[in-house]
Design a binder for these strands. Sequence first.
DNA 1: TCCTATTGTGGAAGCGGTTCCATAGAGGAG
DNA 2: CTCCTCTATGGAACCGCTTCCACAATAGGA
Lengths: 340, 340
Amino acid sequence: MKITINEIAKMAGVSKSTVSRALNGTGYISDEKKSKIFELVKIHNYVPDSKAVNLSKGKAMTVGLVLPSAAGPFYGEVVRGLEEVLSANKYFTMLMTFDNTSVEEVRKRYISMIGSKRVDGMIIFDPEVNAEMVEKVMSFKIPVVYLGESIQGMDVDTILIDNFDGAYMMTEHLVKIHNYKRIAFITGPANSFDGAERLRGFKHALEMNGLSFDPTLVFRGDFTKESGKNAAEVCLKSGANAIFASNDEMALGVIEELQRKGIKVGKDMAVVGFDDAFWSRYIFPPLTTVHQPMHSIGKMAAKTILEKIESNDVVKTPMKIVLNTRLIVRNSCGCGSFTN
Amino acid sequence: MKITINEIAKMAGVSKSTVSRALNGTGYISDEKKSKIFELVKIHNYVPDSKAVNLSKGKAMTVGLVLPSAAGPFYGEVVRGLEEVLSANKYFTMLMTFDNTSVEEVRKRYISMIGSKRVDGMIIFDPEVNAEMVEKVMSFKIPVVYLGESIQGMDVDTILIDNFDGAYMMTEHLVKIHNYKRIAFITGPANSFDGAERLRGFKHALEMNGLSFDPTLVFRGDFTKESGKNAAEVCLKSGANAIFASNDEMALGVIEELQRKGIKVGKDMAVVGFDDAFWSRYIFPPLTTVHQPMHSIGKMAAKTILEKIESNDVVKTPMKIVLNTRLIVRNSCGCGSFTN
DNA sequence: TCCTATTGTGGAAGCGGTTCCATAGAGGAG
DNA sequence: CTCCTCTATGGAACCGCTTCCACAATAGGA
């Protein structure tokens, strides 16, 4: 037979309110009954049914996390950061993944997750959110934190990394340390906020260092390795002496293509990326790139969402938290020594 | 004001049982009332509170997933496979991660998750489960599937990959294709089931191919890159002409160390791994390794757990599902052409 | 001694649904 | 014109826990 608070109460010869109070440490209770109750609890291995507790308290003690599977390499880190603070606060994580084929279904699914109050708050990393989606999510009036994307003109909390600054640092490294004058840039897809910011940072760094920004050295990519490969050829023709791919995957594509053509990366041509993907240190030559603090993102997201959940202060002004990136200098930019 | 089934009922001029029936499509209901109810639902954007539904139905519609963060590289794949089938069945995923520093807390945490019936079933990947833990988990009588580890003598469902066969195939490749006679083997940590199976497969393949197993060519590792580095030196002294590291990380360590010493991997010395980690194709030289079907594991786990949840057939005989691995031949074994 | 805190406890009303059961009207069969 | 069977619907119990409120007993203070 399933054992509930009623059973415990009956066996202890008290009312269930008393049991509840004992277990939660709320209100007065005699030591005698308290210990008897705890004894019974131990014996029967009783744990309150969270479904009942949650309904009664009107709280799910759960926060939802939505991630694109493209975040694959970063997954672990974000989740770990998140869990680190959520678990300390007795909250649980409800995960939802999506790849490009299922965006619509996943959106439906996480909307339903919110609507049905299965979660108390939501952390959403949807690289292509639009105002309509945000509106819909907000209409449920539950705490939400968006990741990685700045949603212009919407009153939402956002946590993002400093793409602009990362690209700036990288560009400056290329210019100041290596003295490259003609740097090609491979962009992300047209609708990518991250990509746009990186381009902006690149451009600004150029200008601040006395180089003029040359639009003919900018090539459109879409963050895939394939697009990097394609861009490599064109870059070559453009007479660039360094290639800044706005993510690591494209950088990898560029490198493979260059190597296929017998061009020595780091020596004949510098190639750098952005992301500090897990594998970027292992490729040849080790990739110079920009590190994204994924673990911190997870932690910040958790902290922010918990704060919003626990203070019912709905009118708090939304904020944008920007986390710093870090330049990771390895060899593909021409730094260091390595055999080729 | 929060809108509940009562509000809808009142507005529609019916009882809440009728609303419930309309929404769930159970029992009889007149078209007239049904459409009025649905209209109201739409207008007010009403979604039943899952906390109430769950309590009432006695089901959480959630399955728990426990993963070690060491599974990092595989994370995404497992989760995606899982989600693929869970979401199709209206179930949600509750995720829990742990690294080596927090094993005990995480165990406590997922035990509480089970005890409090927050999940209807549990998928556990705990590389170092012991009988005691299993016992404890089983005592709650909820469906559980273990991943990656064969738990001897315990009546639990397990999904694992065929480590034995994978190592067998790899070894045979080394022997038959390349004709290496002295193959060194770097093991996993002493308590690793995976590691032991791989060693067993290695040994068996040797014997089946007329080579005797030489214990002096077996070196203890612990699945870390560092241990691979260390083992590399000793391997070298042993006069081996091929090194089979029982995971990719160690293989990477070996390769780096070898390269540091100026030894050409794939040419002077073959090095192979096991796991097909995400980055294994990108290192230099591209690693020959054994692929683990992580996506399939996720899918199978989900299917198995759902079946167990939905049939209340508790007495079903537990089974062990073994998924095939695949040999991935790249260049580090000496196959193919590449510039060194 | 009487009054008022303080402490300890039980009863009952929620939380927001589902579901069993009783009841009633409408048709159709006999 | 009955009787029976569907079809529709409402009422109430229930899921397992929290929490408010009322009340009792004990203890101090005046």
